[in-house]
């Protein structure tokens, strides 16, 4: 740390793009880079495909955004496992029959919400740090999955769900993208237009102050974790519709990328600041990056390395913390 200096006046950096614009620009740059490296990357069908992959991460990241805005070290590491579990429940109850869609989705979301409730209670009542609580929950949900399936996932997505997710409705766009748009709007509405949303930002910015002004911080936090798990469950159901059959680690790999999408989208891990639009763009950036790395013919190991390095660069665009001043 260098010697303390006077902070440059704000005028010196008169205009800086917001995190959402910046992340969007990165996404465009990545797409252009992809087109240059492998012509056809930016083709309509290919882009639609990328967006479709981004949708799952993006829906999981809705809940992650809510929990992170709630502050207090809020983070939900169990989202990947919860999504997997929801897909497994959905698949088994549906058993490939349209008539079972409603009970299947209801049961899956109910179980997900219950897991979120336990997370929320652990974080608020027992004051277990969110990172650890949701980390422990990964083990429990994995256990539930094994107990429920006996190690062998069964069932199948109902045809109606599959055609809802994969079917082309307008402009040759899969229904999944419209569902994502719908859920995204729901998330923005929740955060910006409801009492819960306002309370959430208040608690995230300063929990003590929020409590003093009459916000029930505990209740808001519990609801945040319930919503997080529920959105994760929804993502699991969508994923089920996409893949039609499930396997035991279907959505596990979304755990930390969902956090990364939130951070790249400009939401502060400290809580209280941010929004869903950024997260959605962050998820798109991460997915386009994955797509670009897959088209490059550099082998799995180097792809992983480049992924890490680019992630670091992306994070340093907006994920930086302020420096210490005395």
């Amino acid at each position: 740390m260098s010697a303390p200096t006077v902070e440059a006046p704000r005028r010196a950096l008169a205009w800086r793009p917001g995190p959402v614009a910046l992340a969007g620009a990165v996404a465009v740059v990545l797409v252009i880079a992809g087109e240059l490296v492998s012509p056809g990357f930016a083709g309509y069908g290919q882009l639609v495909n990328l967006m479709r992959v981004a949708a799952f991460l993006s829906v999981i990241a809705i809940g992650q955004t809510i929990v992170i805005i709630a502050g207090g070290g809020g983070v939900d590491l169990s989202v990947g496992k919860v999504a997997t579990f929801a897909a497994i429940i959905g698949s088994r109850v549906m058993a490939g029959d349209d008539a079972n869609i409603v009970p299947a989705v209801a049961l899956a979301l109910l179980v997900a919400a219950a897991i979120g409730l336990v997370n929320g209670l652990g974080v608020t009542l027992l004051r277990i740090p969110p990172f650890v609580m949701t980390l422990g929950m990964i083990g429990v949900v994995q256990g539930l999955i094994l107990a429920y399936t006996g190690g062998q996932a069964s069932g199948r997505a109902a045809p109606a769900l599959t055609s809802l997710v994969n079917g082309r409705i307008v402009f040759d766009l899969p229904g999944l993208l419209f569902l994502w748009l719908l859920l995204g709007l729901l998330a923005v509405w929740l955060l910006r237009r409801t009492t819960f949303g306002w309370n959430l930002y208040a608690v995230g910015a300063n929990r003590a102050a929020a409590e003093l002004t009459g916000v029930r911080a505990g209740r808001t936090l519990i609801l945040a974790y319930v919503l997080s798990a529920t959105f994760a469950g929804l993502a699991g159901i969508l994923l089920l519709g996409y893949t039609e059959s499930v396997f035991l680690d279907l959505a596990d790999q979304y755990m930390l990328p969902s956090v990364a999408a939130v951070v790249i989208g400009g939401t502060l891990l400290a809580g209280g600041i941010g929004g869903y639009a950024g997260t959605a763009v962050g998820a798109i950036v991460l997915t386009v990056l994955q797509g670009l790395l897959t088209t490059l013919d550099i082998g799995g190991a180097w792809r992983t390395i480049v992924n890490g390095v680019v992630l670091l660069v992306l994070l340093s665009l907006y994920g930086r913390q302020r420096r210490l001043r005395s």
């Binding site: 983070v75 990172f131 930390l256 956090v259 990364a260 951070v263 891990l269 992983t304 390395i305 992924n307 890490g308 390095v309 992630l311 670091l312 994070l315 340093s316 994920g319 930086r320 913390q321 302020r322 420096r323």
Partner: peptide
């Protein structure tokens, strides 16, 4: 000055 959770997640890929 990146957030440790996401920064070390990124380096873990490397």
């Amino acid at each position: 000055r990146l957030q440790p959770i996401v920064a070390t997640f990124a380096t873990s890929f490397v």
